[in-house]
Amino acid sequence: MSEIQVWKYVIKWGLAQNLELPSNPATFSKENFNVLKNTLRQLIHFIKFSNITSREFSEVVLPYKKILPKELYKDLLKIFLNLHPDSKLTDNLKNHVM
């Protein structure tokens, strides 16, 4: 299973734990993001963002940026903005993110 699939399943699980949340993050309120963030807090650090592409980050992770810890989000954004859309993080950058 790819890491982006893991991310999608984690999000799906988080939404299933909070049936009051909309399925589309574009319609989330600040409180909706906080609820999902609290639900997934202990799972986020298990996601190996280094195994996803810049394009996957942009299309699938970025809509949920508000559930990521601020420092992690800023680090990921800096790194992924500098990659080719289908690139993954290099080994020397993996240590910084993880």
Results as ranks from 00 to 15, higher is better:
Gln5Ala: 08
Gln5Leu: 15
Gln5Cys: 02
Val6Cys: 07
Val6Tyr: 15
Trp7Thr: 04
Trp7Arg: 07
Trp7Cys: 04
Lys8Pro: 02
Lys8Gly: 01
Lys8Met: 09
Tyr9Ala: 09
Tyr9Trp: 10
Tyr9Leu: 08
Ile11Arg: 03
Ile11Trp: 05
Ile11Asn: 04
Leu15Thr: 04
Leu15Asn: 03
Ala16Phe: 01
Gln17Lys: 12
Gln17Pro: 00
Gln17Arg: 10
Leu19Lys: 10
Glu20Ala: 15
Glu20Tyr: 05
Glu20Gln: 14
Leu21Ile: 01
Leu21Phe: 01
Pro22His: 06
Ser23Val: 14
Asn24Gly: 03
Asn24Thr: 11
Asn24Val: 09
Ala26Val: 12
Ala26Thr: 15
Ser29His: 04
Lys30Trp: 04
Glu31Gly: 01
Glu31Thr: 11
Asn32Ala: 06
Asn32Asp: 14
Phe33Met: 04
Phe33Cys: 04
Phe33Tyr: 14
Asn34Gln: 09
Asn34Leu: 07
Asn34Asp: 08
Asn34Gly: 03
Leu36Ala: 01
Leu36Asn: 00
Leu36Lys: 00
Lys37His: 00
Lys37Val: 01
Asn38Thr: 06
Thr39Leu: 00
Leu40His: 01
Leu40Asn: 00
Leu40Phe: 03
Arg41Met: 03
Arg41Cys: 00
Gln42Pro: 00
Gln42Glu: 06
Leu43Asn: 08
Leu43Gly: 00
Ile44Val: 11
Ile44Thr: 03
Ile44Phe: 04
His45Lys: 13
Phe46Trp: 11
Phe46Ala: 07
Ile47Asp: 00
Lys48Leu: 10
Lys48Phe: 05
Asn51Tyr: 13
Asn51Glu: 14
Ile52Glu: 05
Ser54Trp: 03
Ser54Arg: 13
Ser54Ala: 15
Ser54Asp: 08
Glu56Ile: 09
Phe57Asp: 09
Val60Ser: 14
Tyr64Leu: 10
Tyr64Glu: 10
Lys65Leu: 11
Lys65Tyr: 15
Lys65Cys: 12
Lys66Tyr: 13
Lys66Asp: 13
Ile67Cys: 07
Leu68Asn: 09
Leu68Lys: 08
Pro69Cys: 07
Lys70Asn: 15
Lys70Tyr: 12
Glu71Cys: 07
Glu71Tyr: 06
Glu71His: 06
Leu72His: 08
Tyr73Cys: 09
Lys74Glu: 15
Lys74Asp: 14
Lys74Asn: 14
Lys74Val: 08
Leu76Glu: 05
Leu76Ile: 05
Leu77Asp: 15
Ile79Asn: 05
Ile79His: 09
Phe80Lys: 02
Leu81Asn: 15
Leu81Met: 13
